[in-house]
Design a protein around this nucleic acid. Structure first.
Lengths: 205, 205
DNA sequence: CCTACCGATCGGTAGG
DNA sequence: CCTACCGATCGGTAGG
C-alpha cells in the first residue's frame, strides 16, 4: 500500500534495508525453509526479481541478517573489555551491552542459531571467526579479573562459554513488552554474569 | 551390507531405533531441510517406504527425536528437586543430571532448537509444555533455596532461565573427546550453576 | 493371506 | 522491475 509506493522513491540503501527487514520478520516467524522469496517480495509489494537487485540469493539474505549482529556482539564485549577501570565494572558493562545486542536484535540472533546450516560455508566461516574472538575476549577479561583477585573462576574459558550461553539463550524466552523492560533486563543479566564469575562483593563503581 | 542384512532380523523396536539414529545423525550434520528421507533410508540400506512403516512422515521422525530428550531433561531436574536433602545439594544433583542429558544427547538437543519450526503444532505444544514445567520446577527449587537461606537470588524465575540457558547452550560448543570428559564437565557446569544461584559457601555434602 | 518391503511415479513447489 | 517460465528436487503413496 503506502509502503509499496514509497519503495520506489527510497535510496538504494533504504530499499536494501526494507528487503532485509521483511526477510528478518518472515525467517523469524516461519523459519528460513518455509519462507519463499515470493513471500518476502509480496510483503514488500514487489516481485521476486526485485530481491535479486540487492542480494545474490536466499542464502545471501540470510548472511546479511546474521553477520552484522554477531559482529555487534563481539564489538560490545571487546569495547567494554578495553576500557579503563576494574575488571568487575568492565565485565558488568560488557554484559549490559552484549545483552542489549541480543535482546534488541532477538530475531537476528534466533535466525542465526536456527539457520546456521543454511549459510554458505564462506559466510559461516566469517561468522565463526567472530564468535571465536568473542569467546577469547571474554575469557581474557575473566582471567584478568581472576589475576586481580576480583573473580573466583576455576576455568575462565569454560566460564566464558557459560556466560555467553546464559545471555545468548535469552533470545529463546525474552518477550518485549514483558514484565521487565529491556534496560532493566540488561542490568539483571549483568548481575547474574557477575555471580557466575564469582564476584564476592557488590561494591558500587 | 552386514548392517543391511541385519535389519531384517531385528525387532520392530530395534528397527525403529535404527531409523531414528540415522535421522539423528543426518539432521544433526546437514540440517532437517537438507536431509531427504531417501538419504535416511540410504544410510540404512533400505528404501524410503521402509521409514513409513514406523513413522507417519518426516515431521514425525523429528518429533520422535526431540520429545524424549526434552522429557529426560525435565525428569532429571524434577527427580533431583524432589529428593530429600538441602537445596544446594538438590540443585547440584539437578544440574549434574541435566547437563548429562544435554551432553549425552547433544545432537537431539541441537536438532530441537534448530528445527523447532518444522515440528507439527501438536508435537511442539507437547514439548513446550514440558519446557514450561522444567522452568517451573527449577524456579521452585531456587525459590526454596532462597527461603532456606542457601541461595542469594533476586528473581528465581529469571535465574532459572539463566541457568537453563547456560547448560542448554553447551550443545553449541561441547565436543566429546575434548579436553574434559563428560562427567567432569557435568560437575563443572553444576558448580557454575551454584555460583549463579549465589551459593556463598561450598560446604561438602 | 499377511508383513515387510521395492521400483516407479505423481502432485506440488522451490530457487532462480 | 514484472511476467513468464525452467530445471531440479522432494515428501508421500500407489501397485505389485
Amino acid at each position: 500500500m503506502s509502503g509499496t509506493e514509497r519503495v520506489r522513491s527510497e535510496t538504494q540503501a533504504a530499499k536494501r534495508e526494507r528487503v532485509l527487514h521483511a526477510a528478518m520478520a518472515l525467517f523469524y516467524e516461519r523459519g528460513y525453509s518455509a519462507t519463499t522469496l515470493d513471500d518476502v517480495a509480496a510483503r514488500l509489494g514487489v516481485t521476486k526479481p526485485f530481491i535479486y537487485t540487492y542480494f545474490r540469493g536466499k542464502a545471501d539474505l540470510l548472511a546479511a541478517l546474521c553477520q552484522p549482529t554477531i559482529a555487534l556482539s563481539l564489538q560490545a564485549v571487546a569495547q567494554a573489555a578495553a576500557e579503563p577501570g576494574p575488571p568487575t565494572e568492565r565485565l558488568r558493562r560488557a554484559m549490559v551491552d552484549f545483552t542489549r545486542v541480543v535482546l534488541s536484535r532477538q530475531a537476528n540472533i534466533a535466525i542465526f542459531f536456527r539457520e546456521e546450516k543454511h549459510l554458505e560455508p564462506a559466510a559461516l566461516d566469517e561468522i565463526n571467526a567472530l564468535r571465536k574472538r568473542f569467546d577469547q575476549v571474554l575469557s581474557a577479561l575473566l582471567a584478568e579479573g581472576v589475576a586481580a583477585g576480583a573473580f573466583e573462576i576455576a576455568d575462565p574459558s569454560l566460564a566464558a562459554l557459560a556466560i555467553g550461553g546464559m545471555v545468548s539463550w535469552a533470545y529463546t524466552w525474552y518477550r518485549p513488552n514483558g514484565r521487565m523492560d529491556l534496560e532493566t533486563m540488561c542490568g539483571r543479566m549483568a548481575e547474574l554474569a557477575l555471580n557466575l564469575a564469582g564476584v564476592r562483593l557488590r561494591a558500587a563503581a
